[in-house]
Nucleic acid binder design. Sequence first.
DNA 1: AATATCATGTAACATGTTACATGATTGG
DNA 2: CCAATCATGTAACATGTTACATGATATT
Lengths: 203, 203
Amino acid sequence: MSRSEQTQTAVLGALSVMSMTGYALREEIRSVLGHFWSESFGQIYPALAELQRQGLVERRGADRARSSVFAITPAGTARLRELLGEPVQPVRPRNGLMLRLFFGRQLGPEACRNLIREARAEAEARLAELAVARSESREGPHAEDRPYWLLTISAGEHAARAAIAWADEALESLASLPDHAPPHAAAEAPAVSETVHPAREHP
Amino acid sequence: MSRSEQTQTAVLGALSVMSMTGYALREEIRSVLGHFWSESFGQIYPALAELQRQGLVERRGADRARSSVFAITPAGTARLRELLGEPVQPVRPRNGLMLRLFFGRQLGPEACRNLIREARAEAEARLAELAVARSESREGPHAEDRPYWLLTISAGEHAARAAIAWADEALESLASLPDHAPPHAAAEAPAVSETVHPAREHP
DNA sequence: AATATCATGTAACATGTTACATGATTGG
DNA sequence: CCAATCATGTAACATGTTACATGATATT
């Protein structure tokens, strides 16, 4: 999977489930695949044009600036299988939370705790969204697709629960640290204060 | 955190632990932060130049093409704290495994199982690496940093264990699926498939 | 009629990786 | 000396997002 074939895969995949407009594609990808995939207009339309040129999708409906629906062709389905069979290309990690925690000594325990609480809340929210997705999947287009969709939902749930468990553990482990603030801190720092930072100077 | 301040954060953070060359920076970031962060030469050197220009790091040693060590300045430490305090910028997800599983019906259960087994093996490997990192952290430069490093290691472990648990569950759930291969699969010839639109234009 | 949303597309920008060029240092 | 590795840097490329331009359709 060298090029932006990734986008082609996502687009062909979505069209394999249901024909739709490019606009709807973005919406679908955001709402349905949103937990593990993302595409922007700037990728979707060029990809659609290229796929059409290759005869992998076709346009139906008025072709002059009017709303038109894209549908996958048999060749497109074959291509989709081919693309799905290619090796998963590794993602370079960029986890801003972990970066901050790794240098957490510079931030001090309290700020770190806030970051972790935030992450925990996000994981809870994700869990709730996934519960909705799970129940909605019962009305999904194809019963044949459902077992696979549930796999991805389950993966999200496992990850979110792990994040929550980690956060609780991390908060506890940070609680035992003396809240001594960063080394020689508060030099020129203006009164930033942040969301929860009431106790700068202790009694 | 608008620009590539992310890179500046990582570089300043690494230099806050220990002074080193740009080359070593890449190695350190890859080996120590590798589980959740990555930078390439193409980012590190320009970032170092910019940081030096701003007086946040300084160069020590011969400055004519010879090996030189970069060290963080007091202003750099202050800037690091500022950067670490900025909101975590969300990452757009791109999980190739989940994309494949979501359209797993096109691949068939067996291919999906292979993907999951692969992911499980990677998670096991990650777990082993993290165990090494955990034991190595005992000889880390600064005892004060250790609690924070352990937080990130623990997060990796939680995530990896969750991935393993999910994989086992997923394999079991796929085992119950009839191994009927993808819909009208096998032949690469476009054997007419069409998931949603069985009928072409002609009646 | 006015506004919001749907829909398509593109250009400018932002980001990030790879491959290369160059030379120093080190170990066999 | 030769090769490998350390070290710095850059240019070309690949990727991806945002903002804008344009106009249709639907809603109020």
